[in-house]
């Protein structure tokens, strides 16, 4: 079973929940899909056993064949190519790596068959184990933008049997959608603030659009019940509440998972998992 932990708003406690849920379920696997800023490793201190480079497809021009007709630039949906024609057989093709999505359209459709497949590294997958948990981390190279590609490659390493927990990036844009796609459950982590609620609603709408069943964890819970009101209006189950406590924040700041700092939470996370199973 694949459970994606997402929130919309950053800093609500996705990683806190994802790590503690994984540590409460023996044999589970935790995949850090926040490839722009992975931080699960800070709590698991995993031993990395393998690293795999993530490559994207890029076109390579065969200048012997190219006649600078400009068709590749015309059909590129991302405006990643520019063709400059200086003379009958002279010109230059400029590829803008950061605009290219690696779809291969230019390679496929070049009338002169002057484009061939090449690759370019954009990220790395780190695979290992920590605290008895199988660990996979996607890491996007600095200045790269193809986060969804790295996330999709990381997700290919998900174990077939047993529980897989995906720690999603904040937001509800492409990287969060890439994480949530084809998972069994969306665990929406929020906090009782107007921003937390606003982004919870966005995250919930994304899960609904992707037809992934969802439930809510309220982190830093206090007296304000704005999240409860929202959830009851949408028939959304609140599966766990974690109070706003200095003790929890302090453990987090030291890189200590919640279930290690307060072992009683292990049972609560196991109950959370059982509730999810019951909902599917």
């Amino acid at each position: 079973m694949k459970i994606a932990v997402l929130s919309g708003k950053g800093g609500t406690g996705k990683t806190t929940i994802a790590v503690s849920l994984a540590l409460s379920l023996p044999g589970s696997q935790l995949i850090d899909c926040d490839v722009e800023e992975p931080n699960v490793h800070l709590f698991l201190n995993p031993e990395i056993k393998e690293e795999k480079v993530v490559n994207t497809l890029v076109p390579e021009v065969d200048y012997e064949k190219c006649n600078f007709c400009g068709y590749c630039a015309k059909i590129c949906a991302y405006n990643a190519l520019s063709v400059l024609k200086f003379g009958e057989k002279e010109g230059e093709i400029l590829l803008f790596n950061h605009l290219c999505h690696g779809c291969g359209g230019c390679i496929l459709l070049c009338p002169e068959k002057a484009m061939k497949e090449a690759t370019r590294p954009v990220g790395v997958l780190r695979i290992g184990e920590g605290k008895g948990i199988k660990f996979v981390e996607g890491r996007l190279n600095i200045s790269e933008v193809l986060a969804p590609l790295v996330i999709e490659e990381a997700k290919k390493l998900a174990q077939e049997d047993g529980v897989v927990i995906l720690d999603a990036p904040p937001g509800t844009s492409c990287p969060a959608v890439a994480t949530l796609k084809e998972t069994d459950f969306a665990l929406l982590v929020t906090e009782p603030t107007p921003f937390g609620l606003h982004d919870l609603e966005l995250a919930y709408e994304v899960a609904k659009a992707l037809k992934v069943p969802a439930g809510v964890v309220i982190n830093k819970a206090g007296e304000d019940d704005i999240v409860e009101e929202f959830c009851s209006s949408r028939n959304l189950s609140i599966l766990l509440k974690i109070p706003f406590k200095r003790e929890i924040a302090s453990a987090y700041a030291q890189g200590i998972p919640l279930v290690e700092a307060i072992p009683d939470y292990k049972v609560k996370f196991q109950e959370l998992y059982n509730q999810i199973r019951g909902m599917l």
């Binding site: 630039a73 991302y78 405006n79 990643a80 190519l81 520019s82 803008f96 605009l99």
Partner: peptide, 18 residues
């Protein structure tokens, strides 16, 4: 023609002008 392009407006505009 590229002022509302989602990305790469500069690249396309430059090619257009060139």
């Amino acid at each position: 023609p590229y002022k509302d392009a989602p990305g790469g407006a500069g690249v396309q505009s430059a090619q257009f002008v060139a």
